[in-house]
Design a protein around this nucleic acid. Sequence first.
DNA 1: CAAAATACGTAACATACGGTACAGCGCTCC
DNA 2: GGAGCGCTGTACCGTATGTTACGTATTTTG
Lengths: 275, 275
Amino acid sequence: MVSSIAELISDRIGTMPAGERRAAQTLIASYPLIGLKTVAEFSAAAGVSSPTILRFVARLGFQNYPEFQSALQDELAAQLQSPASRTLNPPSPGSSAVSPMLEATLDNMRETFRHLSDKQLADIVAKLADRRGKTFLIGGRFTDPLARYMAAHLAIIQPNVFHLGGQESVWRDRLIDMGKRDVLVIFDIRRYQDSLVRFAETANQRGVQIVLFTDQWLSPIARFARHVIAGRTAVPSAWDSSAALFVVVETLIGAVTRQLEADGTKRIRELESLR
Amino acid sequence: MVSSIAELISDRIGTMPAGERRAAQTLIASYPLIGLKTVAEFSAAAGVSSPTILRFVARLGFQNYPEFQSALQDELAAQLQSPASRTLNPPSPGSSAVSPMLEATLDNMRETFRHLSDKQLADIVAKLADRRGKTFLIGGRFTDPLARYMAAHLAIIQPNVFHLGGQESVWRDRLIDMGKRDVLVIFDIRRYQDSLVRFAETANQRGVQIVLFTDQWLSPIARFARHVIAGRTAVPSAWDSSAALFVVVETLIGAVTRQLEADGTKRIRELESLR
DNA sequence: CAAAATACGTAACATACGGTACAGCGCTCC
DNA sequence: GGAGCGCTGTACCGTATGTTACGTATTTTG
């Protein structure tokens, strides 16, 4: 089984005519970017004509050029999403049986933060630290503990922080308390829960600003969310991992705390005097 | 100066209308691959119409879609050519406040697992997968969400899993249900809670086997615990981090699940047939 | 050396892709 | 409550792109 297109090429490059070989070498030289451009650009870079390029990809077994490009993109996607397979990352010497899980988790965190800009985090921190409205937190079946964890911390450093728990009918009624100045922090990863989506939709209609923690496939709630944090969840286990989101949560908690300290709010001063 | 398109997006995402923001979030979530596909595919993935995508790239300052794609490709080229720079988030000169937090967290996890032997984990897994008794879980002020998270998973793959929540008086009375064959999983990090220590002590007297998740300074509960997992918690923040413990929890959940699958318990077979 | 087969490029073609005009809708602000 | 503005999607258009047919060049083989 041939895994990458690059291997496929080097397998068959010997059997190719001159023109196609030039195409192959050009592609390998700056793999895989030339292949993502148009046939015309590819052909120009290789110094051959467009049909030669097309014959080249046909020889590789692709029906047409777009199909070839899709394959390249899929390959790229796989590379970008599992940095573990990339040469870097110290193979960590004593990596043992538990390690696959740990390694995957560490990768997830690095990837999650790589897709997260400082600006984005700063915006969310500003919103959470802005105390003109209330903050509500809620999560799904497996993620509600994250909501609780965040609520437990935020509720200490600022007033008007509420975790929405218990029966659906209970927290649904809390919508009455929510308005434009309020923030709703929702955790929702696969499989996404209808009840949460409906809840988010209604909250959105009431003008509540939504901060969504979800996985890389984005919960439908992203549609209504003002801020979306997409965490990586794939690990070698029967379950998805929420660890990356957990770290983002802790980061935010820390940042909000620092922000409020900087603001020198009365509450923080009182807290400090209590310690 | 804006270096990457991702930054450019997060800079302006605040000023965008809903539809375009959705496009932006979708792009960021699986950056940059969606952007290399056609407008039609991009729009479908984001759940908006094609013109919205085009308006989105126009707002980013690109004359047209191909120009936008070229920019993405150039960026990718730069990344792929210097894989060294991607190791982790480069210490990047202006490296924000988030990086130290992430780095410290990653270190904590490595350290935590370094001090954790396979044998130790295997023993705990065996104990949790042994279904002759009941499993109770409880945590402290900040760690109870971890107990809930673990309970939410374990309760699916096996019966007799109970999270102890609510008022202290409530769960204290549950001691009556606990006996020699049962397991009590306790989470307790600084500052250790007296109520939990007393609870653990009593449970221990009743012959309950205690699995303790604590920090590196060890909760006094360690005195009664059969198994102790000490996680690193130090991070550059006003709060301690439970992230390392969280990862241990996920690792255990995965391992117990695998164990039960291997045992081929009736419940697991039924669960699988339900999926 | 001749003849055939293969390879390659030019040019014409059709498709599907990006782009635009326009109308409907919701929202905000008088 | 009404008027204006801005956002969004539908429908259509022009064109750049991938594709194919064909003629020429080049290599191969008897």
